[in-house]
Amino acid sequence: MRDGSTEPTPEMVDVEDDPSALRSTFALFPSGVAAISAVVEGEPVVLVASSFQVGISLDPPLVLFAVQHTSRSWPRLRTAPRLGVSVLGEAHDGAARQLASRAADRFAGITTTTTPDGAHLVHGAPVWMECSVHSEVPAGDHDVVLLRVHGTGTVPDTEPLVWHGSSFRALTPRSAP
């Protein structure tokens, strides 16, 4: 405690001395969960990103996510003319796990729509975006990918799925005043 505060204060840990501290710290930042998908060579390909960010730029309209260099899906997805971004809703907890798995058919039992340009979207998501790759920037063991947004669809009353504490969670709706 310092400055008379009764709130606990964290102890700083050197991440070079304890690399697991960085992963634990990152896990405490809540983020939305997005399925990024397209039909490539006649087959739907997907990756699930908890690093997805909106509001990067309005002119041009850009969003971003980070993808590990070890991703098997991204090399295939980056070739698609359009990518579907489905910001997953609270009802997608099981679907998010399935889409992120290494299962042969990750979309089994999941209802989807494909746009004429091949963007692949998950039904029940509060946000849909049709995007194309704008640019990629190397960032350590990941690449930061900027996507240009070409179209959006929203269902504002659908609660989002959140990644926090290394697990999927739902937001608790606010009580009416």
Rank of each mutant, 00 (worst) to 15 (best):
M1S: 14
R2K: 12
D3R: 12
G4N: 08
S5T: 15
T6P: 00
P8C: 09
T9S: 11
E11M: 09
E11Y: 11
M12H: 09
M12P: 13
V13L: 06
D14S: 06
D14R: 00
D17K: 01
P19E: 05
S20L: 12
A21W: 05
L22D: 04
S24C: 08
S24H: 12
L28N: 10
F29D: 01
P30I: 09
P30V: 04
S31H: 01
G32S: 08
A34F: 06
A34P: 08
A34Y: 04
S37F: 03
S37T: 02
E41N: 15
G42F: 04
G42C: 05
P44W: 02
V48N: 00
A49T: 01
S50E: 10
Q53T: 14
I56C: 10
L58W: 01
P61L: 02
P61H: 08
L62I: 10
L64K: 11
Q68P: 01
S71R: 10
R72D: 10
W74A: 01
P75G: 07
T79V: 10
P81L: 00
G84I: 07
G84N: 04
V85E: 00
V85A: 01
S86W: 04
S86A: 14
V87L: 07
V87M: 10
H92L: 02
H92W: 03
D93E: 13
A95S: 14
R97F: 11
Q98R: 14
L99D: 07
S101D: 04
A104Q: 13
A104S: 15
D105Y: 06
D105M: 05
A108S: 12
T111S: 13
T113L: 14
T114K: 03
T115P: 04
T115C: 06
D117W: 09
D117K: 10
D117E: 15
A119M: 08
H120L: 11
H120D: 06
L121N: 00
L121S: 07
V122H: 05
H123A: 15
P126V: 02
M129Q: 09
S132F: 05
H134V: 01
S135W: 00
S135R: 08
E136K: 06
E136R: 15
V137Q: 10
A139P: 01
G140D: 09
V144Q: 11
V144M: 12
V145L: 04
L146V: 04
L146F: 15
L146Q: 12
V149A: 04
H150W: 11
H150F: 13
T152A: 07
T152D: 05
G153H: 15
V155L: 12
V155T: 13
P156I: 11
P156V: 11
D157H: 14
T158G: 00
E159G: 14
E159M: 12
W163I: 02
W163K: 00
H164W: 09
G165Y: 06
G165L: 02
S167V: 03
F168I: 02
R169W: 02
A170T: 09
L171M: 11
T172C: 05
T172R: 14
T172Y: 03
P173E: 03
R174L: 10
S175F: 06
S175L: 14
A176Q: 09
